[in-house]
């Protein structure tokens, strides 16, 4: 019995160590090179001259404007209207961008910010974990406890 418990603890230790090593070695190592992803997309935070703070995925600089996808939470003040063959997202009656994807809780919206209006543009690099990771951790914590009780 004691031997089984010891083996289990050693297994946990090994699992934890593997996770730490993966993140520490692979994640933190700076990948200097000339190999880049096939599809454009860069996680960014943008502060505009109007004081608006935006987060999203920067796709391109086109006609002097930064083009990026951002998620707008669905609500009573958010609506989608079709105009001239395109779906536009309105927030409080003002157009903010075009629809990329309508999801259950939010709308992926393509926005444009003129370069001269973008005061601070920061790239979020090596952000491997986020809210999805935290939610998955909580979900699997309860799943693990339920399995252990059985």
């Amino acid at each position: 019995m004691a031997q089984m418990s010891g083996t289990r603890a050693a297994m946990r230790l090994l699992l934890c160590f593997s996770l730490c090593a993966t993140v520490a070695l692979a994640g933190c190592a700076r990948t200097v090179g000339w190999e880049f992803a096939d599809d454009p997309g860069l996680p960014v935070d943008i502060r505009t001259s109007g004081g608006e703070e935006l987060s999203g995925t920067l796709l391109e600089l086109s006609s002097g404007s930064l083009v990026f996808d951002t998620e707008i939470e669905r609500g009573e003040n958010v609506e989608v209207r079709r105009r001239g063959g395109a779906d536009y997202v309105y927030v409080d009656g003002v157009i903010v961008g075009t629809v990329v994807e309508i999801r259950d809780f939010d709308i992926v919206t393509r926005r444009r910010v003129p370069l001269e209006e973008a005061r601070d543009v920061s790239v979020r690099s090596r952000g491997y974990v986020g809210w999805g990771t935290a939610i998955a951790a909580v979900a699997f914590f309860f799943l693990g406890q339920a399995l252990e009780e059985q």
Binding site: R12, L15, C16, L19, V23, Y128, V129, G132, T133, A134, I135, A136, A137, V138, A139, F140, F141, F142, L143, G144, Q145, L147, E148
Partner: peptide
């Protein structure tokens, strides 16, 4: 990582 941390904590 998320599922791993959750399971290990459990």
């Amino acid at each position: 990582i998320g599922p791993g941390i959750g399971l290990l904590l459990a």
